[in-house]
């Protein structure tokens, strides 16, 4: 990006404010857990059907090295899948935005990849590529990349015609127009897509692990359910939720640090 964002106008990450912003969400989660605990105890629901939050908590404490180990495996798949989405989606979006003909050729293919259920695709990929990390990364990528492409294309095409005309009056070529005008304009849209992709990458990794893996939180959920260790499975689900939140927050923080002008004037997030 050649247009560096302007100084520390607005933006800036202050912890107290961030905490204050998170307080209502935190309260809601605590309240939900309290109700959940009360319902389980009142109706005497058995643990392998629905464990209480306190049982999940003590299961997490008891098995934390195991949880952490599996979480790490999932996290690596999520990261690789997420970065693959970024590396492929951004150039793809520029290609699609470059001409209506290219867009008409590529978009149907993308929609097809989105209509195929990834759970059905995963075993095929594992047979084709072997039982290693690659098929899991591909599944993660397939789940995560689409909103990023759609968001980036929307941003590139939403550039106001007046700005394009300004570029033309300054004798900008098509490449300059893309890099110095369209792409900076699309930044808020790109980050809208990145936030969705970050959350979806976690979903994608777990889907892949359900089908074929010997490690990861998805694998842990399956094996513990097979032995009716439901509290541990729930602990893995909580770990996944935390991972999703962290991924989302990391993207938001990057946006606020690198592009402070962007977060203030955010466009509506593109649909999934």
């Amino acid at each position: 990006m050649q247009e560096r964002p302007a100084g520390p106008a607005g933006g800036g990450f202050r912890l107290p404010a961030a905490l204050r912003g998170a307080a209502p969400g935190l309260l809601a989660v605590i309240l939900l857990f309290l109700i959940w605990e009360a319902v389980c105890r009142l109706f005497g629901i058995r643990e392998f059907l629905l464990p209480t939050p306190s049982a999940i908590f003590s299961a997490s404490i008891a098995a934390w090295p195991l949880l952490l180990w599996h979480a790490w495996a999932t996290f690596l798949t999520v990261l690789w899948g997420f970065f693959a989405s970024v590396a492929i989606s951004l150039p793809l979006a520029m290609l699609i935005a470059s001409s209506p003909a290219v867009s008409a050729a590529i978009y149907p293919l993308l929609v097809i990849t989105q209509s195929i259920p990834k759970v059905a695709l995963a075993p095929i990929l594992i047979i084709a590529l072997g039982a290693n990390e690659l098929p899991r990364i591909i599944v993660t990528f397939l789940v995560a990349f689409f909103p990023l492409v759609v968001g980036t294309v929307a941003g590139l095409l939403a550039t106001p015609p007046e700005l394009i005309e300004l570029g033309r009056a300054c004798r900008a070529g098509r490449m300059q127009e893309l890099l110095r005008i369209r792409l900076p304009f699309a930044i808020p849209f790109v980050f809208g897509g990145l936030k969705v992709a970050a959350a979806l990458a976690v979903v994608g990794a777990v889907v892949a692990e359900f089908v074929g893996a010997d490690a990861g939180l998805g694998y842990l959920i399956q094996t513990s359910m097979a032995f009716f260790r439901t509290p541990l499975a729930f602990a893995a689900v909580v770990a996944l939720a935390i991972m999703g939140i962290l991924m989302f927050q990391a993207v938001s923080l990057t946006e606020r640090l690198l592009f402070p002008w962007s977060s203030g004037a955010e466009p509506p997030a593109p649909g999934i």
């Binding site: 247009e3 560096r4 964002p5 100084g7 300054c170 004798r171 900076p184 304009f185 002008w261």
Partner: peptide, 17 residues
């Protein structure tokens, strides 16, 4: 340009050319 400050906006055409 919404992402550039006033000074960078003013110098944008010259930098582009």
């Amino acid at each position: 340009l919404p992402w550039a400050d006033v000074l960078r906006n003013v110098t944008f055409p010259l930098r582009l050319m």
